[in-house]
């Protein structure tokens, strides 16, 4: 892949929407890869003891999934130079053979100096917004 050109982008450009299924196995794998072994991300008993409805995804896992929408669109994972999210509602991941899901939509909100674009992301799970102020600055070719 090669990096997207600024000539191909304008304010309002929509990124392809993606729906990511999320299973308990995904959370266990992410825990191992990231080093975040907080049991609320894999243990139903602990999650409900602290008042959650059940096991929830790592916020950082949701943030990483959302980043893929931006980096796949930009054609280069190194193009994402700044990335911010606020964590809102949790992504519930039931152990029911189906699991949870994260839906990510993105739109170019502004073109910035230096051939950069700001992408605003809308990230939901089962219709609830799970990230807010989710913004990525992408360096274009």
């Amino acid at each position: 892949m090669s990096r997207l050109s600024v000539a191909d982008v304008e304010v309002g450009t929509e990124l392809p929407e993606r729906v990511f299924p999320v299973t308990r196995a995904d959370l266990v794998r992410y825990a191992g890869a990231s080093g975040d072994f907080n049991p609320i991300h894999w243990n139903e008993r602990v999650a409900t003891e602290v008042g959650l409805p059940g096991v929830i995804a790592h916020g950082m896992f949701t943030m990483a999934l959302a980043s893929r929408v931006v980096t796949d669109w930009a054609g280069d994972p190194g193009a994402l130079v700044e990335y911010h999210v606020r964590f809102g509602r949790p992504v519930l991941v039931p152990d029911d053979g189906v699991g949870g899901e994260v839906t990510v939509r993105g739109r170019v909100a502004a073109l910035l100096d230096g051939d950069r674009a700001r992408v605003d992301l809308t990230v939901t799970s089962r219709g609830d917004k799970v990230l807010s102020l989710a913004r990525a600055i992408v360096a274009l070719a």
């Binding site: 892949m1 794998r29 992410y30 191992g32 890869a33 990483a64 994972p77």
Partner: peptide
């Protein structure tokens, strides 16, 4: 490579 696999990032640059 382990981290990229965990988040499903398939780009070969990883």
């Amino acid at each position: 490579a382990e981290f990229a696999a965990a988040i499903g990032a398939a780009d070969p640059v990883h």
